Computed example of a mutant assay.
Amino acid sequence: MSHLDYSVFQLINHLAVSDRFLNPLMIFLAEKAQYLFFAAIIFYWFYPKANNRKMVVEAILAACAALSINGGIGHFFYRARPFVAHHVNFLISHAKNASFPSDHATAAFVIATAIWIWIKRDGWIWLILAAGIALARVWTGVHYPLDVTAGMVIGVSIAFAVHCLFSRFEKMNKVSEAIIGVYESVEGKILEKSNMLRKR
């Protein structure tokens, strides 16, 4: 499996030389595109549409759970990154920490899947972006294909697991509603004070 993984890595990573015109895009996807998912969380939270905030709560909780799982795996199963173990086309700077599984792929896929579960049309766009991030992490030399594949599996699985918990257990639903309720209560008070100040 490791030999196949490295062979596929070489094929993808060599594209940084043969198709170098795509390198700026891949560098952006590998380093910066994750912030688009943070922006998505903020956008959907404030976009006034039914169930958006429930979706965001699920996405955040799922992301926290998935990344915690990654941390545990990385602690007990350390795998050196490609640029540490091999000569690679290394396009971005990165710490020499655990390579497996990919946190970037996990975070991207867990949020994209959470969005897909609630809003299919938007979800496909985010899933394509998540796939782009996963590919770019290999292209730029910081992950093996198996790293990002594991991240994808963990992200997708945890997003569905969290959604199932909220769907099947009323207590979980109440937790979500309580979180949203606390925020909306604070938000209402801030808006009320803001309106009072304007009237003065």
Rank of each mutant, 00 (worst) to 15 (best):
I133R: 00
S99K: 12
K96N: 12
L146Q: 03
L127P: 08
V84G: 02
D147A: 11
Y78D: 01
S167H: 14
Y144R: 02
F169P: 03
R168D: 09
Y183S: 06
S185V: 00
L91V: 09
G72R: 01
E177Y: 05
R81M: 08
L91W: 06
P101N: 05
W124F: 13
G132R: 02
V88H: 03
W116Q: 10
P82C: 07
I73R: 01
P82F: 03
W126Y: 14
H163E: 11
I154E: 07
P101F: 10
W126D: 09
A134R: 07
I154P: 00
M152Q: 01
M172I: 05
E184Q: 15
A114S: 15
V156D: 13
I158E: 06
I73T: 07
A112R: 04
F77I: 12
I128P: 01
H104I: 11
V153P: 04
A161E: 06
G71Q: 13
F166P: 02
R81F: 12
A114Y: 10
W124S: 06
W116I: 03
S99N: 13
R137T: 07
A131Q: 08
L146H: 10
I158F: 02
F90S: 04
R137W: 00
I119T: 04
C164A: 15
H87M: 13
R137F: 09
A105Y: 01
G155M: 11
A85Q: 03
H163T: 14
H87F: 11
G151Y: 03
V148S: 04
V138I: 13
L135H: 07
S93I: 07
A161H: 08
P82A: 03
E177P: 06
S176L: 04
E177K: 09
F76R: 01
S167P: 02
